[in-house]
């Protein structure tokens, strides 16, 4: 492998890793909703789109930095998520019907409404937040002058990745060290037992849906300096989040992080070595392969190999 090839390869891997960190945040939001509520939220990417537009509006009206808008967008999405759970999903869980997949179809309907309202309000133009650091980059040679190979790291990608890692860390702390976090994990493990232990499952469900939405909202704000936005952007991210969830193992947070990283790497590699247009196909090949060869996801591997806990 010549040094140029090596350079391209390393660059691809790093890029995939950074992307994977953001994907992980996206996947965690979906996986905790799935773990607690046992439903697939197909409006996940659309919620992210809402957060991206909140960040966009804050930027264009008040010149607020997209990274700062996490503080506003995430709580806003939390409230939106709680509202959706309370007024739309809960009533459906109660009605009896022939098809049990009604909740999934319901979230599709919610997603359609969100996308369409965004199209009406913001038009389908591609928009972005032109921040001055969006094209800045780090170079390996800045730190290591005699380096034989040259690597570059985009500044916004790095910052987004670091914030994503911080948020994930905060979430981990919340889930393992606080009472509320413990009741969420208890409900995910065994709902009936959680009720018997005095957990208010209704409240936990609402908070979980809100939390999942807030996480994807934060991910949206982190994506903004890198991506452009348009109302339909959500759909692909819903699929990405779902693929990560399957890859990681349903309801497993650690699995979602690993799944996100694997997917990020794989997509980056497909885009470099096969072609940009095929990156989404790579995503689905991973998905199908995971379904067939590793139906329990990475989480099942962790469990059998007794990694970690």
């Amino acid at each position: 492998m010549s040094s140029v090839q090596l350079q391209v390869f390393l660059q691809t891997v790093i890029q995939g890793f950074l992307l994977g960190g953001l994907y992980a945040l996206l996947g965690i939001g979906m996986t905790i909703i799935m773990g607690v509520m046992k439903i697939i939220n197909l409006a996940h990417g659309e919620l992210m789109m809402v957060a991206m537009y909140i960040a966009f509006v804050l930027f264009s009206a008040f010149h607020m930095d997209p990274y700062l808008s996490v503080v506003i967008a995430a709580p806003a999405l939390f409230l939106l998520g709680v509202g959706i759970q309370k007024y739309l999903i809960n009533p459906v869980l109660k009605v009896d019907s022939i098809l049990p997949e009604n909740q999934v179809i319901l979230t599709v309907g919610i997603g359609m409404v969100l996308v369409n309202v965004a199209t009406i309000v913001f038009k389908s133009d591609y928009r972005q937040t032109p921040v001055d650091y969006s094209t800045k980059a780090w170079y390996l040679s800045d730190f290591w002058r005699t380096s034989p190979i040259e690597l570059s790291l985009s500044l916004p990608w790095t910052v987004s990745f670091v914030i994503a890692v911080l948020i994930t860390g905060g979430l981990w702390f919340f889930l393992t060290r606080t009472d509320l976090g413990k009741s969420i994990r208890a409900t995910a493990q065994d709902q009936d037992a959680a009720i018997l232990m005095g957990v208010n499952v209704q409240r936990v469900r609402m908070i979980t849906f809100g939390l999942g939405s807030a996480l994807v909202g934060a991910a949206g704000c982190l994506f903004i300096p890198i991506y452009y936005i348009y109302p339909d952007i959500g759909g692909q991210f819903t699929l990405i989040a779902f693929v990560i969830t399957i890859l990681g193992g349903l309801g497993s947070t650690v699995g979602a992080i690993i799944g996100g990283l694997i997917l990020g790497l794989f997509e980056s590699l497909t885009a470099t070595y096969i072609g940009m247009g095929w990156a989404p196909v790579g995503r689905f090949i991973i998905f199908v392969a995971a379904l067939i060869f590793l139906p329990g996801g990475v989480a099942s591997l962790i469990r059998t190999r007794k990694f970690g806990k």
Binding site: G109, M112, V113
Partner: peptide, 21 residues
């Protein structure tokens, strides 16, 4: 005209909640 998916979505939500079959 541009809002047809909103109506579809709302119709879908209403149908699922009130007339699931």
């Amino acid at each position: 005209g541009t809002a047809h998916q909103t109506f579809f979505g709302i119709l879908l939500i209403v149908i699922i909640i009130f007339l699931p079959n």
